[in-house]
């Protein structure tokens, strides 16, 4: 319940935070909302020598909406993403997903950047980022680099982030007008994490699917894009048969995780069921 001792620095600039990370990449951890890090420190599953609190860094904050897209600072909390009216006017997916994360107190503190960088295989935002074709902006020693969300997640709790890099912002291209969104999730009863979560961005033109992106979380080692299922839907109606086929393709896209609570078969089934229900919800 009490973490092992560590040093604490409240970073005053992104450069300072990156320098501190570079000094001791293995022994340094970034502190944002702390809702993943602090429990693991309390249980002494991790004992970093230094915590760098990035909570003051203005360049990691805020939601900006422009003609071309939406920019979200890594420190934006789940609650802020839930509450932002301009954001949810454009992308109601944020409200849907944020509302299903953990509980109100955790949402008040936990951040989207922390969630993405932690890459919990059952976290919600990864699926949403994939469905929105987001781009992750990463700050490092030599400035910023960007990477598509679909290339960001590597494995269980593992991303392309180097030890001296900081997830700074998320850039989301402005969706084509008329795009519909849905996030569905089956929650683990204890942790509240996704047993399976599915995010979809989909556009119909004259009852035919013209654009579709599907992000899936909870089912595999990391969130993934349901490419085959989405491709299959393009140019088709959302008929029962087409939906069934897309669901089959999506569940075949991965080898599902199996754990004490849910078998791989169950997760594969949830992928199908939830995709079908999501698509039905999007059917006009």
């Amino acid at each position: 319940m009490i973490p092992a001792a560590f040093d604490y620095v409240r970073a005053s600039s992104l450069t300072q935070a990156i320098d501190l990370l570079r000094n001791d990449p293995d022994g340094t951890k970034l502190l944002a909302g702390g809702h993943t890090l602090l429990p693991s420190l309390k249980l002494r599953l991790a004992s970093p020598a230094l915590l760098v609190d990035i909570g003051d860094l203005a360049e990691l904050k805020g939601i900006e909406i422009s003609e071309t897209g939406i920019r979200i600072g890594a420190l934006t909390t789940h609650a802020e993403l839930f509450a932002s009216l301009p954001l949810n006017e454009q992308l109601p997916l944020f409200r849907q997903a944020a509302g299903l994360i953990a509980d109100p107190q955790v949402r008040n503190r936990g951040t989207i950047g922390g969630s993405l960088a932690n890459a919990d295989p059952a976290a919600d935002w990864p699926a949403v980022m994939l469905a929105l074709q987001a781009e992750i902006e990463i700050a490092g020693t030599s400035g910023f680099r960007t990477i598509l969300a679909r290339d960001f997640f590597v494995d269980i709790f593992s991303t392309v982030l180097e030890a001296d890099e900081i997830l700074a912002r998320i850039n989301i291209p402005r969706p084509t007008a008329g795009t519909r969104f849905v996030y569905r999730k089956i929650r683990h009863p204890a942790s509240g994490f996704a047993v399976v979560g599915i995010a979809i961005a989909l556009r119909l033109s004259q009852n035919l699917v013209s654009e579709a992106t599907i992000g899936v979380t909870g089912a595999a080692n990391h969130a993934f894009v349901g490419e085959d299922a989405a491709d299959f839907l393009i140019g088709k109606t959302l008929s029962r048969e087409n939906i069934d086929q897309a669901a089959r393709l999506l569940s075949e896209a991965t080898e599902c995780l199996s754990d004490r609570y849910a078998s791989a078969d169950y997760r594969a089934n949830l992928i199908q069921v939830e995709l079908k229900r999501a698509l039905l919800a999007l059917t006009p």
Binding site: Y8, L31, G34, L38, D53, G55, Q105, V106, N108, R109
Partner: peptide
């Protein structure tokens, strides 16, 4: 917020 998941220094 859950005060068990916030550092005093924060």
């Amino acid at each position: 917020v859950k005060s068990c998941t916030v550092l005093a220094v924060s």
